[in-house]
Amino acid sequence: MTAKVATVTSGKGGVGKTTAVANIAVGLASLGQRVVCIDGDIGLRNLDVVLGLENRIVYDLVDVVEGRCRLRQAMIRDKRLPELYLIPASQTRDKSAVSPSDMVRLCDDLRQECDWILIDSPAGIERGFRNSIAAANLVLVMTNPEVSAVRDADRVIGLLDAEEKGPVHLVINRIKPSMVKRGDMLSVEDVLDLLAIHLIGIVPDDENVIVASNRGTPLAFDNKSKAGMAFHNIARRLMGEDVPFVDVENQGFLQRLFSGRK
């Protein structure tokens, strides 16, 4: 096995990186892939909470890097799926506890053991960001349909270009169809127009995401919600499948049928 390392990053905070990592990981793992998630947000760890694995942390990323435990010991297995693991971040240290070359070494060790390594990058473009992209084979840049988030995504894409990290794919999170329709929110086209990179996912805004994150049960465990479906689709596209985009901006299939008859 040679794993692909995929980093999820955004520049701006609060656009949904951690939620996306958890859900895409669940999506990939339910396709039978062996997935290891790494929380790159040292000092402000969240991924363990969203995945509901907080109470099982014994060792963390910094323990591995500083040699206090073996890699295997820091990998927490999610019991709901056969092959989903988490390497949590340390909560009591900061970004400088790990270096970019530590991350490269760690991922090289892991590559033989799994199919996917998903790295949750912290917000910002400093050390934590550099750590998170150091080993990446591909990068998912997340943004919300807001001008400030798109501006930061643009900056991050520029930095990734300069470092020759790629390919870079775009995930647009929290689209509200009704607001787009009223012209109060940037549309998918507006965002793509500016960023001009490959789109790999559109996730509609969904209150259940918050509920699921609080419970520690990522939405992707439940296939029925629209947001959960969107994350499953991203996982399938990462696997190379050609999945058509669900038209989130127009209300729904039935409504379009009826409005077409008038």
């Binding site: 643009d154 900056r155 894409i157 520029g158 270009d161 500016l194 001009a196």
Partner: peptide, 24 residues
């Protein structure tokens, strides 16, 4: 290439960009 947010180009002569100049 397109100049993305955060890029700064300084040049004493003329500048021609074959691409977009994004906000920022």
């Amino acid at each position: 290439h397109t100049l993305r947010s955060g890029t700064r180009i300084e040049f004493s002569g003329n500048v021609v960009v074959f691409g977009d100049v994004n906000p920022g």
